[in-house]
């Protein structure tokens, strides 16, 4: 399979999105924000250090700044906009608010993506596991304590609900 680097179709949050005039090597982060208007995914370091651009591609958590957008055709892409509709937050989003894990909010979309991914793989992670799994998501406000608390809250609530 081959396609032109400046014209291709991405599957974003279950919707076919046409991308035109993309330059060769343009990152998924830039395509999501600048071409598709999906501003929830944040960009900061553009070298995979901060995690603020985390999205799911083909079921795997990645830094969208390090994904060449043209290489992600035919793979389901889920961004923060695809996690829950506006106005009805996911359990992870609600727990972040309740635990005070959101301060400036810039890192939050990436963290929400990473926490959803973590809790899919590990329903009851220890504090050490949470810290290791979230090592790729940098927060400069909270000191992480309330973020870890939010993750633990969701794990406990999901366990109760079962």
């Amino acid at each position: 399979m081959s396609h032109d680097s400046d014209h291709y179709v991405l599957d974003v949050n279950g919707v076919r999105r046409e991308v035109t005039d993309s330059w060769l090597g343009e990152s998924l982060l830039d395509v999501l924000r600048d071409r598709l208007g999906l501003m929830g995914t944040k960009g900061a370091c553009e070298q995979g250090e901060c995690g603020s651009c985390s999205v799911m591609v083909d079921g795997v958590l990645v830094c969208s700044c390090l994904v060449m957008a043209a290489s992600a055709v035919d793979q389901p892409i889920v961004t923060i906009e695809g996690i829950a509709p506006v106005g009805s937050p996911s359990d992870v989003q609600a727990a972040f608010v309740e635990a005070g894990a959101v301060q400036c909010g810039f890192c939050t979309p990436g963290l929400i993506m990473a926490v959803h991914d973590l809790l899919e793989r590990d329903v009851m992670p220890s504090e050490t596991e949470i810290r290791e799994e979230l090592a790729g998501n940098v927060c400069r406000c909270t000191g992480y304590g309330r973020i870890i608390e939010a993750v633990q809250r969701v794990a406990v609530e999901r366990g109760r609900a079962q």
Binding site: G25, S27, E46, Q47, G48, C65, L66, M68
Partner: peptide, 22 residues
């Protein structure tokens, strides 16, 4: 292009621009 974690850092920094096929 494999995982992109080296190549895309160079592309994002403007140190490298793929000019031929990918």
């Amino acid at each position: 292009l494999a995982g992109g974690t080296d190549l895309m850092v160079e592309v994002n920094d403007g140190h490298r621009r793929p000019s031929g096929d990918v």
